[in-house]
Amino acid sequence: MTVSSTTSSGNTTLDTIVANSKKATTGSTDALGNAISSAAGGQTLGKDAFLQLLVTQLKNQDPLNPQDNSAFVAQLAQFSSLEGIQTLNTSVNNIAGSFTSSQALQASSMVGRSVIVPTTQAVVDTSKTFSGTAVVPSSVSDATVKITDSSGKVVRTLTLGSEPAGNAAFTWDGKDDSGTLLASGTYTFNAAATISGTSTALTTNLPATVSSVTLGQNGGEMMLNLAGLGSIALSKVQTIGL
Score class of each variant (00 low, 15 high):
residue 140 V to N: 01
residue 187 Y to N: 03
residue 143 A to K: 01
residue 5 S to W: 02
residue 228 G to C: 04
residue 153 K to E: 13
residue 66 P to V: 07
residue 53 L to C: 01
residue 103 Q to H: 09
residue 94 N to H: 07
residue 207 P to Y: 09
residue 175 K to E: 08
residue 69 N to S: 14
residue 114 S to K: 14
residue 58 L to Y: 05
residue 177 D to R: 14
residue 5 S to T: 11
residue 32 L to E: 00
residue 72 F to Q: 12
residue 28 S to A: 15
residue 230 G to K: 12
residue 96 A to L: 13
residue 185 G to T: 10
residue 207 P to D: 10
residue 47 K to L: 12
residue 184 S to T: 14
residue 152 G to S: 07
residue 41 G to R: 05
residue 53 L to A: 00
residue 19 A to R: 13
residue 90 T to Q: 12
residue 217 Q to V: 15
residue 8 S to Q: 07
residue 211 S to K: 15
residue 66 P to Y: 06
residue 184 S to V: 09
residue 23 K to Q: 12
residue 141 S to R: 10
residue 118 P to E: 02
residue 121 Q to M: 12
residue 190 N to K: 14
residue 58 L to S: 05
residue 68 D to S: 12
residue 124 V to Y: 04
residue 64 L to K: 14
residue 119 T to R: 02
residue 237 V to Y: 00
residue 63 P to M: 09
residue 106 Q to E: 13
residue 102 S to F: 13
residue 232 I to C: 01
residue 208 A to N: 01
residue 64 L to N: 15
residue 184 S to G: 15
residue 31 A to I: 05
residue 213 V to T: 06
residue 173 D to R: 06
residue 180 T to P: 00
residue 221 E to F: 06
residue 234 L to F: 09
residue 19 A to Q: 14
residue 156 R to Y: 06
residue 176 D to W: 04
residue 133 T to H: 05
residue 210 V to E: 00
residue 5 S to N: 05
residue 45 L to G: 02
residue 96 A to D: 15
residue 88 L to S: 12
residue 102 S to A: 15
residue 208 A to L: 06
residue 114 S to P: 00
residue 1 M to C: 08
residue 129 T to H: 03
residue 97 G to W: 04
residue 193 A to P: 01
residue 172 W to Q: 05
residue 116 I to H: 01
residue 63 P to G: 08
residue 239 T to S: 11
residue 54 L to F: 14
residue 41 G to N: 06
residue 32 L to H: 03
residue 139 S to A: 13
residue 193 A to R: 01
residue 225 N to F: 03
residue 67 Q to R: 09
residue 191 A to S: 03
residue 172 W to T: 03
